[in-house]
Amino acid sequence: MSLEEQTSTEYGSWERPSAFYNKYIKWVIYGLIVVFVVWSMWDIRISFARFVAGIDAAVDLVQNMVPPELTPRKRELLVEGLVESINMSIVATVIGILISLPVGFLAAENLMPSSVYYASRGVISISRSFHELIVAIVAVKAVGFGPLAGVIALSFKTIGFFGKLLAEELEDIDSGQLDAIRAVGGSRFQVLLYGVLPQVLPRIVGLSIYRWDINIRHSTVVGIVGAGGIGVTLLNSFQKYDYDFSLTIILAIVAIVLVGEAVSAIVRRRVQ
């Protein structure tokens, strides 16, 4: 090793430049990542025996789950849950978007004074930072079990998503058109109506459908913390060890999610 090191300095040596200032910092960063992963493994105590036990349990579970079960009574439960989920997704999308329209406008840097801008951005950031289930669990405590909590959670998440994209969209608009309306003596509201809205409307429609697609996904799981929809049914089936039915529900959810994705993709292509 040392011999090799010597010859390389003798004949000339070269070191790869690093994105992280120098190679020491680079190794420190990589080292930290490795240390963290090892620490994680140790902390969570992943052991081979637990894995094996899990695999055994998996065989049992799969045997329990297959074939997926669907008695008339359960079909009723399933359909009820799915319909509730879809209804929640629709209502939450509409309410969420109605609220995020003003929030988005207030968060557009080019249209608003900076204090309003920062306040609205704060609302958006908070909405985006929390997982929908956290929002849902808090909502359940605030208004009780049931779809209302789900609608509140999904609407709240919609505000962050939609408000941010809308604000970005507004920040990109062609200011020449605004000036044109201002130049003919339009009021601030008229500027919004004639100068801004037409420019962003197609995007708003596209984004609404996209968000609806996301809300369908979320509406199938918020029930796990009691906020209504098929998630409630799923959690019940797990708690009753009724794994045949669980599989049925999961497959139904996958189907609904895939259909929602396809529909939203088609509609968005039509609109744009």
Partner: peptide, 14 residues
């Protein structure tokens, strides 16, 4: 297509 919380339900069983 399967949400993380559903995967978590399954793996908690396992």
């Amino acid at each position: 297509s399967v949400n993380v919380i559903i995967w978590a339900l399954i793996f908690v069983v396992l």
